[in-house]
Design a protein around this nucleic acid. Structure first.
Length: 305
RNA sequence: GGUGCCAUAGCUCAGUAGGUAGAGCAACGGACUGAAAAUCCGUGUGUCCUUGGUUCGAUCCCGAGUGGCACCA
């Protein structure tokens, strides 16, 4: 039998964890998480990591496996997760990739270009340039260092420009020379399962889940991390709003309201990305049987060719 | 029961000296290759409560109805 990576994606709160566990038990395999925040061991309540009970039933990878002090990114994830996946395929024909981080899933399925890690000092300097001289100045630098990318990039998006600049400065070569938009060959086939429900339902799930997080002590978790708020890992829905509350910028009620709103928006953004993926096969959460049947049919079709 | 006020976007409300309407919030759509739960761009989504009348034309003026609120009984 060939090897199959089953991707389970969908907006936050839709039930990826449960679906993933059901599928993993049925196929007797492990789960590789594709979640850019659940990966951090310092974050628990605000990221809705699977409960320890759930983690005991099925082996999970990349759940609370890294530290927020590490500068993590999609490329590191691609390298590390791919290694784990390859290892798992030694014992399993099917492996599950479960999560909502669009770029991370994309890194596994299609790969991203190889280029050096950004230098924190250079990034710092560019941030300062943005702060002091404005985005216009960054654009000017980019036009000089990478005129080709200058015509393609969203010139209003400082993060994009900064990244192109930091790579160009670090390597002495234009950022665009590293960009080939690869579709990397993988040793396994990919079957993508997308989970979605009505928008009203999704909003209700999200609102309730945020209330549950607050009841579970999210405020305390955030307060204990407050002194680390400069870390990128904490530029995260659920924490940043509480940080504003700690700074007396908003009330607790307002912070909770904003967490709900920003989570809803995040879910929408995820859907925008996933909807665009033509390989995605959509199901409602709870349609486990249908999903299993679909996967088995897909595999048996594939085995015949 | 009587009197008064109100009824416009999902919500709170503005407005039109009569020419089918706009703010805030919410919502919705999109971009995306090393910060991605990040970052950035875009979009009013409407039986102006219903129904008669006046008018070339009514969301606006007049009458009636319905619903809500307040006060008086």
């Amino acid at each position: 039998m060939k090897k199959y990576l089953i991707v389970v994606a969908g907006p936050t709160g839709i039930g990826k964890t449960n679906t993933g566990i059901s599928l993993a038990r049925y196929f007797n395999t492990a789960i590789v998480s594709a979640d850019s925040r659940q990966i951090f061991k310092e974050l628990t309540i605000g990221t809705a990591v699977p409960h320890s009970k759930e983690l005991k039933t099925v082996k999970h990878y990349f759940i609370q496996s890294h530290s927020i002090f590490e500068n993590y990114n999609a490329s590191k994830y691609e390298n590390e997760a791919l290694k784990i996946i390859e290892t798992l395929f030694e014992k399993h024909d099917i492996v599950l990739l479960v999560g909502g981080s669009m770029l991370y899933i994309n890194a596994i399925c299609n790969g991203i270009d190889i280029m050096p890690d950004a230098d924190p000092e250079i990034r710092k300097a560019l941030k300062k340039q943005l702060e002091n001289e404005g985005i216009e100045s960054l654009r000017y630098s980019l036009k000089k260092l990478d005129p080709d990318y200058y015509t393609k990039v969203d010139l209003k998006n400082p993060n994009r420009i900064i990244h192109a600049l930091e790579i160009s400065i670090l390597t002495g070569k234009p950022y665009s020379s590293f960009r080939s938009n690869p579709k990397k060959e993988r040793s396994f086939s990919i079957i993508k399962i997308g989970l979605n429900c009505s928008r009203n339902q999704l909003h209700e799930i999200i609102n309730k889940r945020v209330d549950r997080m607050i009841d579970a002590g999210l405020e305390t978790e955030a307060r204990n991390l407050y002194h680390l708020k400069h870390l990128n890992a904490l530029n995260t829905v659920g924490y940043r709003e509480l940080f504003s509350y700690f700074e007396n910028e908003i009330t607790l009620e307002k912070a909770i309201e904003l967490i709900k709103r920003n989570t809803r928006r995040y879910a929408r953004k995820q859907l925008t990305w996933f909807r665009n993926d033509e390989e995605m096969n959509w199901f409602e959460p709870g349609q486990i049987k249908e999903i299993i049947t679909f996967i088995e049919n897909r595999i048996s079709e594939n085995e015949q060719h």
